[in-house]
């Protein structure tokens, strides 16, 4: 049953995603191309005289208006012209592409934990009696406030340091895929999953509680519908679309936080590459990894919005 409004809403979702992607690219462009100061001086290591600098600026287009520079920069990236690393002189693509899979495996493992946890927590807290539901929501909100750095440290302290159940670092020998050594994935995946599960659970629990308080749900109970039918028929349909959006946000959080978690555990993923590149002022690598991670988040949110639209109707 496709009518005009859902179609228009879908187009709006895509337009918004496109605009966000452009905004993201502007932020990255500003960070790597504009803010660091005079790129021409930087490229010559400060040894060139004024006249040579001016020639270089003209040749590389540094005197063009900012929007033209952004356009040619973005066009280059779109053509696959990702440049070479300033630190290693290797093509950025060679650095980035092997790490995509590693990060995908890690965030996938984290979501395997986080998604069921979010749904279970939200249902448990959201459908509890009002007093308990409020307390549960408060506890989840407080847990979500704990900085991820603390979660990482405490997990390592307890599970690796004190109990020695799991390795404290996830350093893999080159060429060994992470799935061959699943034990190295457990701690980083938990570190990614737990904070976002608390956050997403708190958010979704509120939605579930609101849905349970709707007059038609109360009416269904008065009419003697058994709880499972009340939940399936009268509550779940109103939680579905928000749940898709919250889960997408949880996934986005996992992708963003991969930078922290991968670095702490020494896991060779995209996030660890980004952090290393930021530390080494390796602008081309920062640009590509930052954009790639950001685009994954933006596309994920757009897909979630489309799915949410499809299930709402």
């Amino acid at each position: 049953m496709t009518s005009a409004p859902p179609l228009r809403a879908g187009v709006a979702v895509l337009a918004r995603a496109g605009a966000t992607a452009v905004l993201l690219s502007v932020v990255v462009f500003a960070a790597v191309e504009v803010l660091p100061g005079d790129a021409a001086a930087a490229r010559t290591g400060g040894r060139a005289d004024a006249a040579r600098l001016a020639r270089l600026r003209e040749a590389t287009g540094l005197d063009d208006p900012l929007w033209q520079r952004w356009l040619s920069w973005a066009a280059g990236l779109l053509r696959g012209d990702w440049g070479t690393s300033l630190l290693t002189d290797r093509p950025v693509a060679d650095l980035v592409l092997p790490r995509l899979a590693a990060t995908a495996v890690l965030t996938g493992a984290a979501l395997l934990v986080a998604v069921p946890l979010v749904l279970a927590l939200a249902w448990l807290v959201g459908t509890a009696r009002p007093g308990r539901s409020r307390v549960g929501g408060a506890v989840l909100t407080a847990l979500a406030a704990v900085p991820q750095a603390v979660v990482v440290a405490v997990l390592v302290l307890v599970l690796a340091g004190l109990l020695r159940w799991l390795p404290a670092v996830s350093l893999l020998p080159p060429g060994v895929p992470p799935l061959r050594r699943p034990e190295v994935l457990v701690l980083p995946a938990l570190a990614l999953a737990l904070p976002s599960a608390a956050w997403g659970g708190a958010l979704l629990a509120g939605v579930v509680a609101d849905a349970c308080a709707a007059p038609h749900v109360r009416d269904a109970r008065v009419r003697g519908m058994p709880p499972w039918r009340v939940h399936r028929d009268h509550v779940a349909p109103f939680v579905l679309a928000p749940a898709v959006r919250v889960l997408a946000a949880v996934a986005a959080g996992a992708v963003s936080s991969a930078a922290l978690v991968e670095t702490v555990f020494g896991y060779r993923g995209l996030g660890e590459l980004l952090v290393g590149a930021v530390a080494g002022r390796d602008a081309p690598v920062v640009a590509v990894t930052g954009l790639l991670g950001g685009l994954v988040v933006v596309v994920g949110a757009a897909v979630a919005d489309l799915v949410a639209l499809a299930v709402t109707r």
Binding site: P215, H216, R218, D219, A220, V222, R223, G224, D233, H234
Partner: peptide, 24 residues
């Protein structure tokens, strides 16, 4: 038992009957 009784034997027209209907 009361739930089954409500479902099989009773009907209630509440104070805001339109709001009590499943909107979807």
């Amino acid at each position: 038992a009361a739930r089954t009784w409500r479902r099989r034997e009773t009907a209630v027209l509440g104070q805001d009957p339109a709001a009590a209907l499943h909107p979807l």
